[in-house]
Design a protein around this nucleic acid. Structure first.
Lengths: 188, 188
DNA sequence: GTCTATAAAGCGATAGAC
DNA sequence: GTCTATCGCTTTATAGAC
């Protein structure tokens, strides 16, 4: 009988995959046990708050990833164009290799909506605000930067829905590419 | 004891509200019974296929609504500008008065993804294609029309996610307005 | 067409051995 | 830190009276 000893971050990584694939309510403890290869005992040892704690840990890990790879680079960029191109690249790769699911967006539907409402709002405002900072660095007015940032995040999120609906990434990649062009386009 | 006799379309309407508010898996039979005011007996009388049949009926009703109010007008428009303005108006009103949820988009997440994959794909391709027809009528090239149509549907869907995340409609309405401007903008 | 009672299965969570 | 057995509850679905 195989018996593997994990640490918490291994468990979080495995959980993220299951939640993305099955959704929060679709990922039952039995399913998690099988697909993530983490037993009930370990799960409740690492996450005493139960399934809600598991979701919170996964969301926090996603949030940290975006903060490090997307938001901070956007906020601190000297070259706005380069930072925005990097965002497109990173985001496309991240979502395509992650079942085309944004877990924060998924949390705006379903039962645990209220539980995670604050962190969901923070994720999206952080993204939009960081992108707006980069656009202002690139010479756009505050209003134009805020509008384009909001539109871009919406386009990416909507693109993910279409990617799942169509069962392929072509439409999503086209949307990301044109969104980048729109972000980098001349001020009006 | 109040006892109300309904027909099937009354039940479908009531179900749609519950599914939008609680999600498919969040809407348990007990919840549906209470919030929709339709008893278990009636539910299984109208929908012998059970909960899956209830969801299918709701999706079909939504699909019919879009076909009549959005897709057909776009396809048959003589004045493309007018048809696109009408789409913006109708769509904004529809989603704001419907918990900011697109049930077809919701079906791209969760357990019953596969069950409704075909009708979900059809909904989005019908929308994108109908919008592209209107844009070609308005003088755009087929490629430009297809791209703008796809971007617009993605923007609206992403806008709904942001509306739910922010808990208000301002961002969504801004996105819809700017999407309309982009659709009506000059050919490049 | 609607009601209530109930069956069978699955759920999240816990206890206690190892 | 991991395991298994089990509790108590809810789930979808059905049966049968009205």
């Amino acid at each position: 009988m195989a018996r593997t000893v994990l640490d918490r971050s291994d468990a979080v990584r495995a959980l993220a995959g299951v939640f993305r694939k099955r959704g929060f309510e679709g990922a039952s403890l039995s399913v998690i046990q099988q697909e993530a290869g983490v037993g009930r005992g370990s799960l409740y040892h690492f996450f005493p708050e139960g399934k809600t704690g598991m979701a919170a840990a996964v969301l926090e890990q996603v949030s940290d990833w975006f903060e490090e790879r997307i938001f901070t680079p956007l906020r601190t960029a000297h070259d706005a164009t380069e930072a925005i191109e990097a965002m497109s690249r990173e985001v496309a790769q991240y979502f395509i290799s992650g079942e085309r699911v944004c877990l924060f967006a998924a949390m705006t539907l379903g039962e645990e909506r209220d539980t995670f409402a604050d962190s969901v709002r923070a994720y999206f405002t952080d993204w939009v605000d960081a992108l707006a900072v980069a656009l202002r660095t690139g010479g756009l007015s505050p209003q134009e930067a805020a509008d384009r940032a909001l539109d871009a995040v919406a386009a990416i999120q909507g693109g993910l829905i279409l990617a799942r609906a169509y069962g392929d990434d072509a439409a999503f990649l086209g949307i990301v590419a044109r969104t980048e062009q729109h972000l980098l386009g001349p001020a009006r």
